[in-house]
């Protein structure tokens, strides 16, 4: 199948892109197009206008503060995988990037595009949740910051207005001793996750966060498990119980895979 007709504008600045999105009913921003492209070909996505962001320099910015690294939304998974984007997350982001789809997709798909698409099974969604990253959103009125939990309302649904662009993510700089765990249950290499467990443990910073992802919904932070992890208490049972509670109503096999994913991610940080 070939896409339904649409117009295309190659934006060169964020204000241009925001203006184009605001001026056209049915306009859609696109970066790598790795999620949107198939939907265009299948004629499920039928935008009137695509605003291509690949030439927007501002989306390729990298800014470092004491506490955070701000990564422009236009960096590709492959660049994060290869370390072109420096890592401040105890290796978590490079490792997650390596596990996204396939190299030819990683060479084109961007972190911002993936997050804006808001597929619950996408790796960056769970990763930003476990890092408690801040998402930088640019609109006509300037920028605002949002956490993943506020940004992603539901599957494929975000708080982005029609004329807003996810322009960057601010990920926290973890301590040198921080550890991260990430386990994805997948039927095939590169396939969408059936279950994700993600863990960050940074004792120096007094931080522990455990996330259960790929739940056909925004990922959930397992608060009790996180607290137990920080205290150094046994987590196995509390994690199981918390996952079971979060996924009540789902089939047993679905719950089992998520329990396993979380347990194995915890295991990676020595919990």
């Amino acid at each position: 199948m070939k896409p339904a007709a649409y117009d295309l504008t190659l934006a060169t600045s964020l204000p241009d892109a925001v203006a184009a999105l605001g001026a056209h009913e049915g306009a859609k921003a696109v970066s790598g197009g790795c999620s949107l492209g198939p939907m265009l070909n299948l004629r499920l996505a039928r935008p009137s206008l695509l605003v291509d962001l690949r030439r927007v320099e501002a989306l390729r910015a990298l800014k470092r503060s004491d506490t955070h690294l701000e990564i422009g939304a236009g960096w590709t998974h492959g660049e994060i995988e290869d370390g072109v984007v420096p890592d401040v997350t105890a290796g978590l982001m490079a490792r997650v990037a390596h596990g996204i789809a396939y190299r030819a997709v990683r060479n084109r798909g961007t972190i911002g595009g993936s997050l804006a698409h808001a597929d619950p099974a996408a790796d960056w969604v769970s990763t930003m949740a476990v890092l408690d990253a801040r998402l930088v959103i640019t609109g006509a009125g300037g920028t605002r910051l949002s956490r993943l939990g506020d940004f992603m309302i539901a599957a494929y649904t975000t708080s982005l207005a029609d004329d807003e662009i996810l322009s960057a993510v601010q990920v926290p700089v973890l301590s040198a001793t921080a550890r991260a765990g990430y386990h994805k249950v997948c039927r095939k290499t590169g396939e969408f996750a059936q279950a994700i467990g993600a863990v960050v443990l940074d004792r120096e910073a007094g931080l522990a966060r455990v996330v259960c992802g790929a739940i056909e919904a925004p990922p959930v932070v397992l608060e009790a498990t996180s607290a137990a992890l920080l205290k150094g208490e046994p987590v196995e049972r509390v994690a199981d119980e918390e996952v079971e509670a979060a996924l009540a109503g789902h089939p047993a096999s679905f719950r089992a895979m998520h329990r396993a994913a979380v347990a194995r991610a915890l295991n990676e940080v020595g919990a």
Partner: peptide
């Protein structure tokens, strides 16, 4: 199963 995301063909790692 209308796409190769719904219908899984085994790849080299499978």
């Amino acid at each position: 199963a209308s796409t190769l995301i719904d219908y899984l063909l085994p790849g080299p790692t499978e």
